[in-house]
């Protein structure tokens, strides 16, 4: 009986450890999950901000890589390339890249590839685990709006953090890298 109680306690502790670990990690991740559009700009007052220590001339700009900074801040992302993506781009399709939360394995990729692959507007799709992005190229003259992409990702079981198109998207050309 004592042994059974001990074992039950041990497993109970393990059972509690998983959500506790998750919660701790979630707290740690809160800042990473913050999106610019989530900030309440209407509550910000310019006169309340402290500009006293800001000296623009004292900044060293010569090593400042604006493009890298923008990419790191999530404002500029790169389209991941595959043969299917390249073919769709060559056909004249417009690309879009969605940053997706919770993408950790190939089952996630399978779910989103299947879900978006069924849409006639989509010419090519690729989920990149390294960049945690859903990469889409639409058929020429077609597209999906952000709300629809968000709904489809939700149907696949995941959640969108941000969607990038146009100038916010960096597309590496065959000759090199450049923003399109």
């Amino acid at each position: 009986m004592i042994r059974t109680l001990f074992l039950s306690s041990a497993f109970g502790a393990l059972a509690l450890a998983v959500p506790a670990l998750t919660s701790a990690y979630a707290l740690q991740m809160q800042h990473d999950d913050m999106q610019h559009e989530d900030m309440k700009h209407q509550d910000m007052k310019h006169q309340d901000m402290d500009h006293g220590e800001h000296d623009h001339e004292a900044h060293d700009h010569k090593d400042h890589d604006m493009e890298a900074d923008e990419a790191a801040s999530g404002e500029l992302v790169m389209l991941s390339r595959t043969a299917e993506i390249d073919a769709a781009l060559a056909a004249g399709g417009e690309p879009a890249v969605a940053q997706v939360l919770g993408v950790v394995c190939d089952f996630c990729a399978k779910a989103m590839n299947k879900t978006f692959g069924k849409r006639e507007e989509v010419a090519a799709t690729y989920v990149d685990l390294d960049t945690k992005t859903l990469n889409l190229v639409f058929r020429p003259g077609q597209s999906l709006d952000d709300e629809t992409i968000g709904e489809l990702v939700k149907k696949a079981g995941y959640r969108i953090a941000a969607i990038h198109r146009g100038d916010a998207l960096m597309v590496e050309s065959a000759q090199g890298t450049g923003a399109e």
């Binding site: 959500p19 990690y25 990473d32 919770g102 996630c108 079981g157 953090a161």
Partner: peptide, 15 residues
């Protein structure tokens, strides 16, 4: 039944 899914940039948790 998936009662709850927690998402993060680098993790996923499910109940």
């Amino acid at each position: 039944w998936l009662a709850k899914r927690w998402f993060g940039e680098n993790y996923q948790a499910n109940l």
